[in-house]
Design a protein around this nucleic acid. Structure first.
Lengths: 199, 199
DNA sequence: CGAGGCCTTGACCGCGGTCAATGCCCGTGG
DNA sequence: CCACGGGCATTGACCGCGGTCAAGGCCTCG
């Protein structure tokens, strides 16, 4: 089961970060279960207690929250080979303020929170794995915060085109806009501006 | 040395998060050295490689970054009993984009990055300590991000008054403003507005 | 072929930033 | 003890980025 092709990507991801022997790897992998998530369906809603960590094998997940006026803000996009979860609720076990949605027909490997924390106790390297995961999540977050507060709409779009073109290629404009924290209208104007002055 | 009064607060902070025996506690504490930081002096600048984790025993440290136009944005304020460091650079060992400055005459306990990571190897509980620290830092960050993108200037100030009045009490307005990510003029207007309509 | 969703474009507007003037507080030196 | 100066807070006038609203066009899919 854990030798199936669907585990290959996850195995590589783990080996990239920590060293574990064959036995430990099997122990880790056997707690991850494959799961299909249909395009547009939502697997975590604000107010729910998040119990799952997801690893994207195929497809794309997005994490977003909703403002009082109903507007969505996309905080994270996970493509093949990336983890995704409503991390704050996963850690604190308080109700989530974030949503998790599949942007395409998606295949994930899911591990339950209890199993995840159980692994922390019995596999020391897994503690390091989580530590590195948290460190990445922190840095990702502060980078976004830094960008939001220092760059204007045009600069944020240019930066995305350069550093993360896959986002623009695979997702509709309205999602890209919410990821850049601007309205679809503004994104549309930025695109036009950049085509006119390719810089 | 490690029994000195200056270590008491740090000892309590550690014991709140993890269980360690006497020996391990001594081992941890002996890597923290007391240090005075004069009011307004800066101990970490953008571009430098951050080598230190600080624990505030007395006083106040702030972490901020500087926008292209020269404006400061305060990202974190650490009072007595809190840790503070330019965490991104501490983790990645790339040049910091953040500054660290004492807002008052401050006494900290400093641990060198190498010693900190050494402790991770030899004291398993220290790995959990760091994991919890990262988790808190992450949650703090995402909370700020969420607030910045969902609340307007007035709401942010009201929330600070309710949840963190110490910031308003101990720090000058221009710092409070930069912490709330607004100009001093706007903060001044919000204060007036709230005094007129105490809500 | 019709309907609905999305993107684009234009007109308008409001929050909050910028700039400048004024006042206040406080430390320092004559 | 008072005069002066510098830093900070406040206030008013102005403005610009980006959001809102509405209309129009295009694509897809049933």
């Amino acid at each position: 089961m854990e030798h199936a092709a669907v585990y290959q990507r996850l195995r590589e991801n783990i080996e990239k970060t920590i060293s574990v022997n064959q036995e430990q790897m099997e122990l880790i992998l056997q707690h991850f279960k494959p799961q299909k998530i249909e395009k547009n369906s939502i697997t975590l809603r604000a107010g729910e207690y998040n119990q799952w960590m997801n690893f994207v094998d195929q497809g794309c997940l997005r994490i977003f929250f909703i403002k009082d006026d109903g507007q969505e803000v996309t905080r994270y996009l996970a493509f093949e080979g990336m983890f995704a979860t409503g991390l704050a609720s996963f850690i604190t076990q308080e109700p989530s303020f974030e949503y998790l949605q599949a942007m395409e027909n998606t295949v994930v490997l899911q591990i339950n929170r209890n199993d995840f924390y159980y692994l922390l106790h019995i596999i020391p390297a897994w503690e390091k794995f989580f530590r590195d995961y948290l460190a990445d999540a922190y840095i990702n977050n502060i980078t976004i915060y830094h960008r939001e507060t220092t760059k204007d709409a045009e600069e944020r779009y240019r930066e995305l085109l350069k550093k993360d073109p896959i986002v623009v290629q695979r997702l509709p404009n309205r999602i890209v806009a919410s990821y850049l924290n601007m309205s679809p209208e503004t994104l549309s104007r930025m695109k036009r501006k950049i085509l006119d002055l390719p810089k």
